[in-house]
């Protein structure tokens, strides 16, 4: 399994507010980018558990595993070898999971945006990612209060 994640923080009272985010992107450097960026964004929101996958199937397997804690947010690329982001979205909805699902694509086309919306994606973000806007969106969608 192509899974890139940091050692999850131990589950304690103090870390009850830990945010669990899953990232799916075939670009390997994505994990490093999100890790560094989110470290800054989430500094005052609590602990962050960031898990990344290089393909959609591995992500699905992770979601299906009951041992894993519930996921708060999924950020997925669209163009990936094998299953693409749209199919992943469909699968996730098929699993009756209703966490926010962000589509992140380098393809800035209205066709993709419309398709993402019709499939029930929460947001459509284009690359290069504007992390300021992404932070705002996460704060809104996960009801994280400004401290």
């Amino acid at each position: 399994m192509d899974r890139i994640c940091d050692v999850p923080a131990p589950y304690t009272r103090e870390t009850e507010l830990m945010i669990h985010i899953v990232i799916v992107d075939d670009e390997a450097d994505t994990h490093l980018l999100y890790k560094l960026k989110f470290k800054k964004l989430f500094a005052h929101w609590g602990e962050l558990n960031l898990v990344s996958f290089l393909n959609a199937q591995d992500c699905l397997d992770y979601l299906k595993n009951p041992e894993n804690k519930p996921v708060d947010l999924i950020l997925s690329d669209i163009n990936m070898p094998g299953m693409d982001g749209f199919e992943l979205l469909k699968e996730v909805h098929g699993m009756k999971l209703d966490m926010p699902f962000y589509m992140v694509s380098a393809y800035e086309s209205s066709e993709f945006r419309t398709k993402a919306e019709s499939l029930g994606a929460t947001r459509f973000l284009s690359k290069p990612v504007d992390f300021h806007r992404l932070g705002e969106a996460v704060r809104q969608d996960l009801n994280l209060s400004e401290q």
């Binding site: 560094l36 380098a106 393809y107």
Partner: peptide, 21 residues
Amino acid sequence: TASVAHEIRNPLNFVLNFSEL
């Protein structure tokens, strides 16, 4: 153009955001 844009935006995503960091 779309393909080229896609191909450039992916690395550009890293260049821009990592430089910011």
